[in-house]
């Protein structure tokens, strides 16, 4: 591994003070990707900024309006082990609890997963489906973007120089809604998604009709794809509609053929995963909470 400097700032202001000094900079949250990338020579830096000593990056909690605010460097396990998160946002728990093995989840963060911007990142489709917003900070202030606006290409996020991802905000979920995230991997653990689907289904008060579907697909395009599902609104929440949603997913997918999966396989899988995730979401939406 190439040599680099390590800095562990205690505040956001201190983080920003280390930026713009001409050094190639990388950020360390859980390190489960960046340490490996540095070791394998896939990324290079002069300084590595450890974000885990900045309090606001490491905590999570619900605000009074029901928004879940998650510090970008908080470990996944702390989020999915939170009983309140489990109760209110099972669709987020789906994703957070299947990124890597338990060892990885002790360290890896949603922020890291988002910033790595892998098209196969598990948290991104789930967060998009939930309508999450991302708080981006810099020395000159902060801005917010929708989760779907963040990825810019394979391995590329839309942070500008001097910016870091500070917080993930998951808004309170609509009444009569349910969300789910599913991925397909060849094994049952230790794999990168071949295809994935995050959904949120909002039903009419009597559960008979679909009011809204948010559907995000992973590993079938250069970035996670948010599918236009306007045509599903007003339809019955049944197998026929879900099949249509699956077809919409297949049509929206723009997969590549690589060592992890083929084009036709991925198109087929996003359809299957969409249907299955919608079934889970429907169950969650109609369960008494």
């Amino acid at each position: 591994m190439e040599a680099f400097d390590y800095v562990a700032p205690r505040s956001l202001a201190e983080v920003y003070s280390h930026l713009g000094n001409g050094k190639r900079t990388l950020f360390l949250a859980g390190g489960t990707d960046v340490i490996v990338q540095l070791r394998e020579g896939r990324r290079h830096c002069d300084q590595l900024i450890d974000l885990k000593h900045v309090p606001e990056l490491m905590r999570h909690g619900f605000t009074s309006d029901g928004t879940l605010e998650i510090g970008a460097a908080s470990p996944l396990a702390e989020i999915y082990e939170d009983a309140e998160v489990q109760r209110r946002l099972p669709g987020l728990v789906d994703a957070a609890s299947l990124i890597g093995g338990i060892q990885i989840q002790s360290r890896a963060s949603l922020g890291g997963n988002l910033c790595n911007a892998s098209p196969a990142a598990d948290s991104t489709p789930a967060l998009m489906a939930l309508g999450a917003r991302l708080v981006i900070g810099s020395a000159s202030g902060s801005r917010e973007v929708a989760a779907e606006e963040f990825p810019a290409g394979p391995g590329q996020n839309s942070l500008r120089p001097g910016e870091i991802l500070v917080q993930i905000k998951v808004p309170p979920q609509p009444a009569h809604s349910g969300a789910a995230y599913l991925r397909f991997i060849p094994r049952n653990e230790m794999d990168i998604a071949v295809a994935s689907a995050g959904v949120r289904l909002v039903l009419s008060p009597d559960n008979s009709r679909i009011e809204d579907v948010r559907l995000a697909l992973g590993a079938v395009g250069p970035t996670v794809i948010l599918v236009n599902t306007n045509d599903l609104a007003g339809k019955a929440a049944n197998a026929e509609t879900f099949k249509l949603a699956g077809e919409m997913a297949s049509a929206a997918a723009r997969p590549i053929d690589d060592m992890r999966g083929g084009v036709a396989q991925r198109r087929r899988l996003v359809s299957v995963l969409t249907v299955r995730a919608l079934n889970t979401a429907l169950q969650r939406a109609t369960e008494a909470r």
């Binding site: 094994r187 049952n188 653990e189 230790m190 794999d191 990168i192 060592m259 992890r260």
Partner: peptide, 24 residues
């Protein structure tokens, strides 16, 4: 062992060379 046409192995890690885990 997955290879590309130039003879490069594409999956030389335990992530992509998929040995069974406890769950498999």
């Amino acid at each position: 062992y997955a290879y590309d046409e130039s003879g490069r192995m594409l999956n030389s890690s335990f992530l992509d060379y998929r040995m069974p885990t406890t769950l498999d």
